[in-house]
Nucleic acid binder design. Structure first.
Length: 435
RNA sequence: GGAGGGAUGACAGAGCGGCCGAAUGUACCGGUCUUGAAAACCGGCGUGGGCUUGCCCACCGUGGGUUCAAAUCCCACUCCCUCCGCCA
């Protein structure tokens, strides 16, 4: 949620920032009108309330003085005011609810360094890395045996069974088997171990209440992209960002505790409602995937460093897995609604010959903290909203795809990088079962 | 799923329908004292909102209700604890 006080004080600046993301100034003017109206009604209701409280106090005094006539007179006046007060209060609440609904749909202000653009085609590539780059070698040439899509590799080696997944839950719900399933488990353990020193490991619930989903900005805006369990007012989480952002909901944190850095691996559920038919083969886009998330609650001053740390960790994992990747600065048109700044990491997957998004590292300023009401107490005793930052490190389905494609050998086997060896019981070579 | 108990400020814990935004203790902050610390003593010490910055309003798990007036009475719900049932 954007800062209403800021909108009140500097409407032109807020309008200019949000115009970059296509929010019309008329939309913001409506909010300003609602805000003025809300405060007018609030004052009206509150002064009536004050009057009733004062009269009631006098009734009490009159009763104590045994002055029945005076007490009856006062309480009759107060009773009459009660009807007006109720009406004023109800009107105030109606406007407040409308204001809140409107405010929940307003996206975050983009940071000044977010490039202008309409969609993902306007994202700006800021870096690219591959094995050997640091030693001066050119961008890798991928051999024909690496130019096989992971769904074919998976079938050949018996480690991915998309038909079985579809039988259970419909298409785009993958089923991994044997060494393929183990590889997934290895990746999660490998990443969590890498972060463990500085990030507390959390295992949150996989479902969240509507309120929890609203805190991050996933509701009400992206309803159609979420799996819902209406009977229990629950939603399947699309990312661990959802539970982690609400972990300290409503709390005032000690400044000394910040930054609070958390990591969690969870299943992530996405309906992908708007993406029907696009890039949906194999593991390119799936309804459920595992992801390790890095998250921090921090002060505004700490936010840049926290963001940079998460980005560096995601990069470090990709490098140690020996995967080619690039960094994209998301443009205004592709930026998530809650984010002020996002850097995406995309891995190059030679079999499908595409760059696949495997991480999104974002700074939310106080946008989510305002929705979740997470504050901290500064050394001067005042309170302020925290900043939240998060990023994936990493999303495993697409990493799985990139690994089996990148490391496919001429004989059809897959030789996984040595760093995974301890997590695979030493079995880094995936071969077709003799059947 | 059934029965009972509970939910009040950072924590503990009081609170006959009016003088309760709330006793008291602890913690915390400032001061006196002290070479320093502790102790003792004095003072301060919740959050949010509105505007005429001095005042007003809201908040005692949540939502309703009764009343001139609700932390206090009534109803529903949520969560926690204990016991029973079921269960990985």
């Amino acid at each position: 949620m954007i800062d209403l006080v800021q909108l009140r004080r500097e409407p032109d600046e807020v309008k200019a920032a949000l115009a970059r993301r296509g929010v019309s100034s008329a939309t913001l003017d409506e909010i300003i009108v609602l805000d003025v109206e809300h405060r007018r009604l609030l004052q009206e209701a509150e002064s009536l309330r004050a009057e009733i409280k004062d009269l009631s106090r006098q009734v009490g005094e009159a009763r104590r003085d045994q002055d029945v006539a005076r007490a009856d007179g006062l309480s009759a006046r107060s009773r009459a005011l009660g009807d007006d007060e109720r009406q004023a209060r109800e009107a105030t609440e109606r406007v407040a609810a409308t204001l809140r609904e409107a405010l929940l749909l307003i996206p975050n202000l983009p940071a000044p360094d977010v490039p202008e653009g309409l969609d993902e085609n306007d994202n700006v590539e800021i870096d690219r890395w591959w094995v050997g780059k640091d030693e001066g070698q050119p961008f890798p040439e991928y051999a024909p045996h690496q130019r096989v899509a992971h769904w074919d590799v998976g079938k050949e080696l018996g480690i991915l069974d998309l038909e079985a997944g579809a039988r259970l839950a419909g298409s785009m719900f993958p089923l991994y088997r044997g060494a393929g399933a183990r590889l997934l488990r290895a990746l999660g353990a490998f990443a969590l171990d890498a972060h463990l020193e500085d990030y507390e490991e959390i295992r949150p619930p996989s479902f969240a209440l509507t309120e929890t989903m609203t805190s991050t900005g996933h509701l009400p805006k992206s309803q159609d992209d979420m799996y819902a369990i209406p009977r229990d007012d629950l939603w399947a989480i699309p990312t661990a960002e959802v539970p982690l952002t609400s972990m300290h909901r409503g709390e005032i944190l000690d400044e000394a505790r910040l930054p609070i850095r958390l990591t969690a691996q969870t299943a992530c559920f996405r309906r992908e409602a708007g993406a029907a038919g696009r890039d949906t083969r194999g593991l390119l886009r799936v309804h459920e995937f595992d992801k390790v998330e890095l998250f921090a609650y921090c002060t505004p001053e700490q936010a840049d460093a926290a963001h940079a740390d998460i980005l560096a960790r995601a990069e470090a994992l990709l490098r140690s897995l020996g995967l080619t990747y690039r960094l994209l600065r998301l443009c205004t048109g592709d930026l998530g609604s809650s984010s002020a700044r996002t850097i995406d990491l995309e891995v190059f997957s030679p079999g499908v010959d595409r760059w696949l998004e495997v991480s999104s590292v974002s700074w939310f300023r106080d946008y989510q903290a305002r929705r979740a009401n997470v504050r901290y107490r500064r050394s001067d005793g005042t309170t302020a909203l925290v900043h939240t930052v998060n990023g994936s490190a990493l999303a495993w389905a697409r990493i799985w795809a990139a690994l089996v494609e990148t490391y496919r050998q001429p004989d059809g086997s897959v030789q996984l990088p040595e760093v995974l060896s301890p997590y695979l019981g030493g079995r880094t070579r995936l071969t077709a079962k003799a059947s």
